[in-house]
């Protein structure tokens, strides 16, 4: 195993710069929202974090599919990495949403379809790790995890749909409809999405490398013990 590849170092630097730039745009470029004020600025990173969370789970499901087709351990490593990142960013999404909801909706928590769906997703992927830790044989663990990553991800749109339909029948006091974005807001928002996406790739790469290094150490240890 070599030390950190140059491309990854460049990617690290790029994501750091992009996030810094996104911060600058959020606070310096995007105009202050008239009714919500400062707290609206959470929105840019809140949606970006949720986007990365979703992306992570999507990558995991795809990696799971490829693992089942090919059986190469590297896809299992990618799958775990993507789920971990997805979990972390979804949590950031939930917390930042809460921070926004407190002054705007006057509550930390609401049974908004998006919020509940993300929470159910968190539960699915926590269950994912419980499944992994319950199975000893590495091949079987990887296969089962891949199956669950796929099944879990497929259930997400149906969960969202059912919760939204559930709400739409009862009168909804608080709607989460998007406020109109001014062009500058939209630009800032798109830039944040991009910055977070680059950050995602960089983190995923790091986490996959970590997984491969762990496997490598395990192999060396096994060789020593034999």
């Amino acid at each position: 195993m070599k030390s950190t590849p140059t491309a990854l170092k460049i990617l690290d630097a790029a994501s750091a710069l992009l996030i810094a730039a996104a911060l600058a745009l959020v606070f310096g470029y995007a105009p202050m929202e008239r009714t919500m004020g400062l707290v609206q600025k959470v929105f840019y990173f809140h949606v970006s974090a949720n986007w990365v969370g979703m992306l992570g789970f999507l990558v995991a499901a795809v990696a799971g599919g490829i693992y089942l087709a090919k059986g190469t351990p590297r896809w299992d490593v990618i799958e775990v990495a993507a789920v971990e990142i997805g979990l972390a960013f979804s949590l950031i999404g939930i917390v930042s949403g809460s921070i926004w909801a407190r002054p705007i909706w006057n509550t930390w928590w609401t049974w908004d379809p998006r919020l509940v769906t993300v929470t159910v997703m968190e539960l699915i992927y926590i269950a994912y790790f419980m499944l992994r830790s319950g199975i000893e044989d590495p091949d079987r663990r990887a296969r089962y995890a891949a199956v669950y990553a796929i099944v879990g991800f497929l259930s997400v749109p149906l969960t969202f749909l059912s919760i939204r339909m559930f709400r739409s029948i009862h009168p909804v006091v608080i709607t989460s409809s998007q406020a109109q974005l001014s062009p500058k807001m939209l630009q800032t928002f798109m830039f944040s999405l991009f910055a977070f996406s680059v950050l995602f790739v960089s983190l995923l790469w790091h986490r996959v490398r970590l997984g491969q290094l762990t496997a490598h150490i395990e192999r060396l240890r096994l060789k020593l013990s034999e």
Partner: peptide, 9 residues
């Protein structure tokens, strides 16, 4: 020449 590995073992 049958080989069987479980994970790394």
């Amino acid at each position: 020449r049958l080989t069987k590995r479980f994970g790394l073992k």
